[in-house]
Design a protein around this nucleic acid. Structure first.
Length: 589
RNA sequence: CGGGGCGUAGCGUAGUGGCUAGCGCGCCUGCUUUGGGAGCAGGAGAUCGGGAGUUCGAAUCUCCCCGCCCCGACCA
């Protein structure tokens, strides 16, 4: 079927929509691919839906060829299943809840671990049935606090979610590896540039977890990449390389010094460099020489509150996201005045290791950054207002309850694998794979009989691809200042044939060419609009972003038409006699 | 939830107390034009987010409500 622009349900916009900031959103709206109907909720118009379906088709084909089996669950689900895992309440406001006419509780599925687990439980009961991997392509609903960037982060979106079921850990690892490869194949075919980063499993529980990120400046996830090896990690999961413990023999003894009005690291460093008695012989003091103590009030799942003191080099801040990830499911907030009032051992601005740690009288848990290893020397608070301790050596003068990875990650930090430099970048999360383990199987009672007849809890993996998000991610990575540039396989057509002029000839010829191309399996978008100026058609074609553009116009009488490559802008005239063959070749048909 | 911005025709916008709410794009009719968002002429399209109030008079001022966008918090 030739798509004819004379009758296509399409209106392109000349101006950027006022509410769209990121390029993918702007162009998807301007080119008439999607329209917003509510915050984070979009409709697909014909061209957009074509692209969406192409992406979906590729995902489905790759899943099938990896041997995974497609099923389909409802989006509307009863409360009970989510009650068993506690997620009915755990999910909080993000869950769309509703009631039926009998006031029974329902939800719109935000994810389907429970349903898949129950499905397998209902059908299988023997180790001989495993392993098995099931998937679905489903609309998911999450009442996000802040949907943004068009279809990049919506409240209704389509996700491909898969779940593997294995009898043991080795099986899970194999299933995980197979899925990982299937994802590599899928994203490659979608034409996406991506990196695989190690991630925190967070709320999902389980052990290993990796994210597939499409690098772009508008991405929501920060990640690091090593410039000299292939290490890459989500910022939450970056590991600080362990520095060698140092011998502290020969280091000067610690000494308390008066440091009035130096409650901030900046003031402390400035003061230490300006007062003769405090200065270093070899160089100026730097913020990194200080040990900053940041205190949080941590609330656990039962609601119990406990202070937590974290010691990090003074030149760094605690990264909220990293803290959140490490503490999960516990929750942390910075200490407030009222908290200090209840913990008099903590002198705001002058807190030091001296009063910290579960062994001390105050009993406050004290964790330090991995950079604070035995033998390192610091300047820290003396727990008396207006005083700091110098030459405070870890392992000699103080010790912590353990270490914690929450310091902000910086460009140039060292790679934990090879010691090279790390660079920071942002990416869109297009896929996430988890070794879930037995959390859901246990909660839902998914057990099968093993070889000797005993009941064995199944171990699971969970794997997601944001299908609708992938459309936006591709648009984000593949556009220029004129519009979209689709990779051929996801493009709404292979060729955009434009007829120009006012006589019938170019239109008749274009029509015939389109029909001949279609007969060879080339998908054609035909601009057969009469009375529309060539400039409008050219601009529309660039906005729409079909990879190959064919212009039938002024040189037709001489027997030539023009072929343009949307991505490179290269154009060449080809003879009408070769047109069909050449264009088919360009399109790989 | 915190901070900032905004709500006027399908889209983009002007208009901070005074005549019939202006302009551009898009749309309709006619003529001309046809290789980079054509020209001329005519036309349709708006309860100015909603409600209440102040005023001789409100898009414009006041109060309440609703909604949207961006940043942050949040987020498998």
């Amino acid at each position: 079927m030739i798509t004819r622009m004379s009758s296509l349900f399409l209106r392109t916009l000349r101006e950027d929509p006022a509410d769209a900031e990121v390029p993918s959103h702007r162009y998807l709206v301007r080119a008439g691919y999607v329209r917003r109907v509510a915050p984070g909720i979009f409709s697909w118009l014909p061209l957009g839906y074509e692209v969406y379906r192409n992406v979906e088709r590729i995902v489905r084909q790759e899943m099938n060829s990896a041997g995974f089996q497609e099923v389909h669950f409802p989006a509307l689900l009863p409360r009970e299943a989510y009650e068993a895992t506690g997620r009915w309440s755990e999910y909080g406001d993000t869950l769309f809840r509703l009631q039926d006419r009998k006031n029974a509780d329902y939800l719109l599925g935000p994810t389907h671990e429970e349903m898949f687990t129950l499905m397998v439980k209902g059908e299988y009961s023997s180790y001989k049935d495993l392993p098995v991997t099931l998937y679905q392509i489903q609309t998911k609903y999450r009442d996000e606090a802040r949907p943004r960037a068009g279809i990049l982060r919506g409240r209704e979106f389509v996700m491909k979610d898969s779940y593997s079921f294995d009898i043991d850990d080795a099986g899970l690892e194999a299933s995980y590896a197979r899925h990982r490869q299937a994802y590599i194949d899928t994203f490659t075919r979608l034409g996406l540039e991506f990196v695989i980063v190690s991630a925190m499993s967070g709320a999902m529980g389980g052990s290993a977890s990796e994210e597939f990120l499409a690098p772009t400046v508008v991405g929501e996830d920060s990640f690091v990449r090593c410039t000299s090896c292939d290490y890459a990690a989500n910022v939450e999961a970056v590991v600080t390389p362990v520095t060698q413990e140092q011998d502290f023999g020969g280091l000067p003894a610690s000494h308390v010094e008066l440091t009035p009005n130096a409650a901030s690291i900046d003031d402390l460093v400035a003061l230490s460099n300006s007062v003769e008695a405090l200065r270093r012989a070899d160089r100026d003091w730097e913020a990194a020489d200080t040990l900053k103590i940041v205190v949080f009030m941590v609330t656990d799942a039962e609601g119990t509150q406990k202070p937590l003191a974290i010691g990090i080099p003074g030149d760094r801040e605690v990264d909220g996201k990293r803290l959140e990830a490490v503490l999960h499911p516990r929750d942390a907030r910075p200490f407030e005045e009222a908290d200090f009032a209840k913990h008099l051992a903590l002198v705001k601005g002058y807190i030091g290791p001296g009063v910290l740690g579960s062994q001390q009288a105050a009993g406050i848990e004290f964790l330090v950054d991995p950079r604070v290893v035995e033998g390192t020397s610091w300047v820290s608070g003396a727990n008396v207002s207006g005083s700091h301790v110098y030459d405070l050596v870890a392992g000699r003068d103080f010790s912590a309850d353990g270490s914690i990875e929450v310091a902000e990650v910086r460009e140039g930090d060292l790679c934990p694998e090879c010691g090279g430099g790390l660079t920071l970048a942002r990416g869109i999360e297009i896929g996430h794979i988890f070794q879930l383990g037995r959390k859901y199987a246990e909660a839902m009672g998914l057990k099968v009989q093993g070889e000797t007849g005993e009941l064995v809890t199944v171990t699971m993996g969970s794997y997601g691809i944001g299908v609708s998000r992938a459309v936006a991610a591709i648009a984000e990575q593949s556009h220029d200042d004129k519009g979209l540039i689709w990779p051929r396989e996801v493009a709404p057509a292979d060729v955009h044939v434009i007829a120009t002029g006012k006589s019938d000839e170019p239109f008749d010829y274009a029509d015939q060419l389109a029909a001949d191309l279609e007969a060879r399996g080339v998908r054609v978008l035909l601009d057969d609009r009469r009375g529309v100026s060539p400039g409008v058609k050219f601009n529309d074609s660039e906005l729409i972003g079909v990879p190959t553009i064919v212009v039938v116009g002024k040189r037709l009488p001489e027997g030539f038409i023009e072929v343009k490559d949307r991505a490179t802008g290269e154009r060449s005239d080809i003879a009408v006699s070769d047109a069909l063959v050449q264009i088919s070749e360009i399109c790989g048909k």
